[in-house]
Amino acid sequence: MIHLKNVHKRFRRPEGGWFDAVRDTTLHIKAGEIFGLIGFSGAGKSTLLRLINLLERPDHGSVNVDGRDLTGLSAAELRRARQNIGMVFQQFNLMANRTVAANIAFPLEIAGWSRADIDARVAECLDIVGLADRAGHYPAQLSGGQKQRVGIARALAPRPHVILADEPTSALDPKTTQSILDCLQDINARFGVTVVIVTHEMHVIRSICHRAALLDAGEVVELLEVTDKQVAARSALAKSLLEVA
């Protein structure tokens, strides 16, 4: 489903010189799985996630999603490909002047859906995330957990095959965190959407992921398998993250 081959991304440091955020990394994510990217801050996990929908363009290497090499696409083709890849953000990134329903409608407007189809799909998505009674509210009137549900509904609306979640629960309290994770797991189970989730908490991995990649200094240092909510860890780094959790 998602194949990253030898992707490399470096950034220019403001004080001069270069910083290799992702180093020559290869990663395969299967269709229908919930895949975690875990590591301490600065490990390159967010950059790696953003390489999947080309929010960051790799310096070299290829990004293949759903059978298409994204790095070779024209701007218009990439926009169409992105409509198949939903994204959920730590800070929600909702449009403050749009109602909940209008926020969820946004990706559908972009994709050129008819008004009637948009209304029907928005209602469906509001139901899926349990916010049917909040359609006319504005983001400022919602709690953090509710905002993230809107973010998830918005990502889900165009029926994408992939959802990328960048620390979706890091701005939320533990109880809300669990409900958001359950929501993502529910979507994965019901619609078979492949979910890639960035986190620094082993708890998130144990709770919903099937597999995860442990990142350190821009490289995948260990692939973690999750069975019965237990993570088998070999590296010292993975063990230290398990201890924190």
Binding site: L78, R79, A81, I110
Partner: peptide, 21 residues
């Protein structure tokens, strides 16, 4: 917020759609 514009980019919005909407 930059993130709101980035979210629209990630959804596949064109520059014109980002400006207007």
């Amino acid at each position: 917020p930059r993130g709101v514009i980035e979210a629209a980019e990630a959804m596949g919005a064109s520059p014109a759609q980002i400006i207007w909407k």
